[in-house]
Structures are given as structure tokens and as C-alpha cells.
Design a protein around this nucleic acid. Sequence first.
DNA 1: CATTTATTTCAAAAAAAAATGAAAACTACA
DNA 2: TGTAGTTTTCATTTTTTTTTGAAATAAATG
Lengths: 168, 168
Amino acid sequence: MIPHKIKSANSVSIKQSLEIESIDFFVRLMGILGMPRSVGEIYGLLYFSEKPLSMDKISSRLEISIGSASQGLRTLKSLKAVRSTYVAGDRRDHYLAETEFRRLFSTFLKDEIMPHLDSANDRISRMEDSLSDNEKNDDFYLIRLEKLKKLTKTSRRLLPALAGLLKW
Amino acid sequence: MIPHKIKSANSVSIKQSLEIESIDFFVRLMGILGMPRSVGEIYGLLYFSEKPLSMDKISSRLEISIGSASQGLRTLKSLKAVRSTYVAGDRRDHYLAETEFRRLFSTFLKDEIMPHLDSANDRISRMEDSLSDNEKNDDFYLIRLEKLKKLTKTSRRLLPALAGLLKW
DNA sequence: CATTTATTTCAAAAAAAAATGAAAACTACA
DNA sequence: TGTAGTTTTCATTTTTTTTTGAAATAAATG
């Protein structure tokens, strides 16, 4: 009889290699978006998991603390990147990856980018207020202010459109 | 006679308030792009400066070390966000902000984002290789892989187009 | 070519961000 | 209501990133 240990190690190792690549993938992707490592790890693990996973499964599988798992899941929930689901006979919450990148990206824009664009506009207004009379007649300052306005205006228009173009 | 000090303080304070808002603006904008504070400060200072500034002027004005100024200018140069210019009778390099955001953004994409997309593709290939025979017939895995491919493909197409849409 | 001035480099310090883990706060259910 | 299981919170620790500043390098000047 084949010892249980070896059998298990085998089937796990194939699975793990997909899992590891997935985690790696999302750690980097989330990194570009300024998210901490743990957030990418959790999403990467869930992305290729057919079954919903509980928090303590996530934390033990990734070898991260339950504190990190809890924080990371909160971030992912607020991005609508994971949702929790009911599992019969288990009191714990179980999590699934949301895989519609269009929606994830648009939540990200709304929560993380748009507020910056709003306050950028306030700052531009203050710049206009603080122009001295001399500067008000100086093309150098006027042109530069105009560029900033165009930049924020265009960003505000373009970024949401971008999300719409993501299929799936 | 009006004391020199007061006159000077006055004219400086108007100027400073524009400068401060500009620095604030770009510190945050660069922050979104993952750039350190000092890089935003330097660009923000140069953005509203009619005259090119030397490195030690930058470092003293911003109260940052010459090391930071040197590093920050290097980063900005590599992003083509500043260029140095000749000033007659002064041995030092003098720097000017490049204000075509379209070009800045496209350099940023090329240097900071595209390499990630390249390695993302490698990682997806490895994921395909690591699918077990079972998984190869399992729609769950195939669909999720397909989504990742679409995501990277679309990003690769869309991001450069985005840069093109930025006027100025 | 020696000296002065300007810039870069990089080890160490400081600051900022993220992870940990234990205590507190929930929650289901007996 | 009490208890055991689960999750959140948050002060502390760890890790990572950024800044500093002094030494090394480079470049101009006389």
C-alpha cells in the first residue's frame, strides 16, 4: 500500500505550483496598485481555489498571522475583490475571489484614485487664488496652471472609461 | 525707507504659497505613482519656477540633503520629467521641469509598468505548464487562466493608448 | 597639476509601512 | 445567560523604504 504521506505530497505539489504562480502574479499586480504583499497573497490563493476558504485556512496556508489575514480580507472586501459565502455546517466565514476585473478596477478607481483627483482640484483652486497680480499677467504661470487643470480634467474623464474597456 | 527685510518677506510669501501648493500637488501625484516624497517635492518646486534651479538651490529651498536632491533628480531625469540646462557663468547644472505630461506618463509606463506586464505573461505560461491533467479538463481552471490572459493582453493594448489621449 | 567647486555614491540612521499576536469584541447556540 | 469558537483591533515588533551626510569621484579653473 502506498503510504498516505507520499500520495498526499504528490497531489499537493502539482496544485501548489499553480497556487504559487498565482500568488506570485497577484502579489506583483497588487504591488503596482500599492497594496501590501499580504493582500496579493490572499487574492492569489483564492483566485485558483475552487472551494471557499476560511480565514484560518488562508492564514495557515500562507503562513501569515490571523491579524494580517483579517486586515487583508477587509481590504479585499472593500475593493469587492472577495466575497464571503455560506458553508453548511461551518460557523466560519468562507471567502471566494471575485474575478470580474472590470468591477474590481472600477472600485479601486473610485476608492483610491478619485478622492485624490478631487483634492487635486482644490489645490489648483488655491494656486489660482495665490497668484500675485504680477503673475496673473504672466503667461508662464497661466499656462502651467492650465496644464494642471487639463491633466486632472482628462484623468477624471479617462480613467473611468478605461475601466469600461476591460472585458470580463 | 521700507526695510529690506519686510519687502523681501512679503514678496517671498506670495510666491511661496503657490510653490507650496505645487509641491503639495506633486508630492501626492507622485505618491500615487509610488515615487518617494523627495521626487514630488523637487518636481513641484521646478514646475512653477521660471528660472532653472541648481541642485544646491533645490536642496536648500526644500531643506533636503544634497544626497536626496541628487537621487531625486536622477529619478526625474530617467523619467524625462526634468532636463538640465546651461546657465552662462555658472558651473553648476541647472534643472527645468518638463511639462508635457503625455510624454512623462508614457516614459513611466514604459519603464515601470510594461516590464511587469512582460513578466506577468511568463508567469501565466508557467501556470499553464503546471496544470495537472485533471485540471486541464476542468473549466474552472481554464476560465480563470483565460481571464488572466485577457487582463494582461487588454492592459498591454490600453495603457499606451491612454497616454496618447493626454493632451499637452 | 593643484585646488576649488560640484556631484554621485553608499553605509548608516530615520521614517514609514506592514505584519504579528494577544486581548477584546463579537456570535451562535446550548 | 454562559461558553466556546471566530473575528477584529491595535500596541508592539519587524521589515522595507527613504533620507542623510560624509567620503569618493569628477570636472572646471587658474
